[in-house]
Amino acid sequence: MASSGELRLTDIERALEVCLPGCRWVLGVHRWHIYPPGGGAAFYLPKGGHGAGRRAVVQRGHVRKLARQFDVLACMQAELDAL
């Protein structure tokens, strides 16, 4: 379970699909490269800890910065109580 201040990647992906459908997630050696639909600049999330793949968790601050860059912060906050 994600602790306070952290969010699970599966939850982030689900919320992002609601707020900005069509984002492409590519797993690098160190980071998830998340490309918004339409060709804007990518956001690079840490792979996270406390679990493998999308079960891992990342700090909430990263998700807030991703949401602000993709201009979906209000929607993501509505989808993710912890944000």
Binding site: G28, H30, R31
Partner: peptide, 13 residues
């Protein structure tokens, strides 16, 4: 570290 890790990811591909 974030800046570095993106560069290392790009170098790996």
């Amino acid at each position: 570290r974030a800046w570095l890790e993106v560069l290392f990811d790009l170098a790996a591909t």
